[in-house]
Design a protein around this nucleic acid. Sequence first.
RNA 1: GGAGAGGUGGCAGAGUGGUCGAAUGCGGCGGACUUGAAAUCCGUUGAGCCCAAAGGGCUCCGGGGGUUCGAAUCCCUCCCUCUCCGCCA
Length: 450
Amino acid sequence: MWSAFWQQWRGLDSPGQFRKQYTMLDQKALRQDPETIATALEWRGHVFDAGAYAGLEARRRELQSRTEALQHERNERSRAIGEAKRRGEDIEPLKAQVGELGEALKNAEAELQAVQARLRDIQLGLPNLPHDSVPPGADESDNVEIRRWGEQPAFEFRPRDHVELGERLDGLDFDAGARLSGSRFVVMRGQIARLHRALAQFMLDVHVEAHGYTEAYVPYLVNEGALIGTGQLPKFAEDLFATEHAEQTLHLIPTAEVPLTNLAAGQILEADALPRGYVCHSPCFRSEAGSYGRDTRGMIRQHQFDKVELVQLTRPDDSYAALERLTGHAEAVLQRLELPYRVVTLCAGDMGFAAAKTYDLEVWLPGQDTYREISSCSNTEAFQARRMQARWRNPDTGRPEPLHTLNGSALAVGRCLVAVLENNQQADGRVAVPSVLRPYMGGREWLEPV
RNA sequence: GGAGAGGUGGCAGAGUGGUCGAAUGCGGCGGACUUGAAAUCCGUUGAGCCCAAAGGGCUCCGGGGGUUCGAAUCCCUCCCUCUCCGCCA
């Protein structure tokens, strides 16, 4: 897998360069204070053997010094041969001397490479460090609700869930999805398909026109380099759908965050180019390995779903303010749709691999009588930026430094459709079209049972 | 898919075995000249890593491998781009 990956990653390639690349945590910190890092990682439930790492790191340092000394000697001697040759002297004795050097150098280089590969593997497997403001905890139950918005609708009847509503509206067909592709696929038709499209269009327009994001259209198949950059690989390959094409592996994107964030890969952006924001509507493909039996009913958890994704690139000192803004942009969509929701700060143990801090937006679903995740907004700080070499030129130092990347769903279109159906249902089975969506629905105010 | 050409620093573009991290031009930055600007002239201008106090060293000319004392330069292979033909939305 690795050789193919390196080949695919252009510009981020040489042995000299990959030393610093594809690490998520700061190399210097890892080197200088692995114990502290181990403690911080423990906090989010990851075991890191600091002692073993420090040992490997010491070995690397020794090997690198030795290798570079040998390279230096080779360069010197080769240069001397060149000069002797130009002067017309006999170079055979000189050549014999260097011959022995070659073997030692070859061995040193091979050893160094092996150690570097091991270090890289460890580094790539380490999750991000939680930010100081992240609450401790092991799982979902330790997440902290920080605010609620909107009123949960009071029904004078037993509210139906979206599966039932979708059936009565003749627009959600899970059987057809299963016949075509298998479980966790759905076919939408008619007024529901249109509502789905309206939601995506509406969200795009809000983010472009009101929030200033740049709209993007991206590939839905990406190479392994991109997935390493954002942190899906090497650890979470089983969550992805893979394709083989022309002897290279491409994966279906699990989120537009992957292509969008990787737009900055290998780049050095000028300070005045930040912050930069992208919005993209795309399908997302997830194998949902390990979630057997969970959310099997309805379209809460599908192999394929649409999402409008926000990505921001910021200066490091601005990323936490940007996280608040970005979360607000996602909330704005729910507010305009008049859907009740709450905001939750994920605890250290519940955060995704790349995140330093995450807010989840959970929308009220009457059919389930609970709040369900509809958006996840994260600051990954420099984690992804280091892996993909996304940098900015810091005017204070004049040097290229990793920038910060953020991402958030705004929103998951399928789950949003579910929320609209369930929250806006009437006793007679009709569903009110939120007023902001009516222009996208040909002025239509109601979805009517067929 | 077939035939051909090519991938070099922010861009353009030289370099076909040795002192090349790389000519030259443009762009950028600093300075001179100018009331200011333009023009002109001078200087400067890639990234990463190692040891480190200064300083020294290593790596990178699409990726990987090979030949060689020595590779941007030769060989193999993969990827990408362009032109023509075919096909197609």
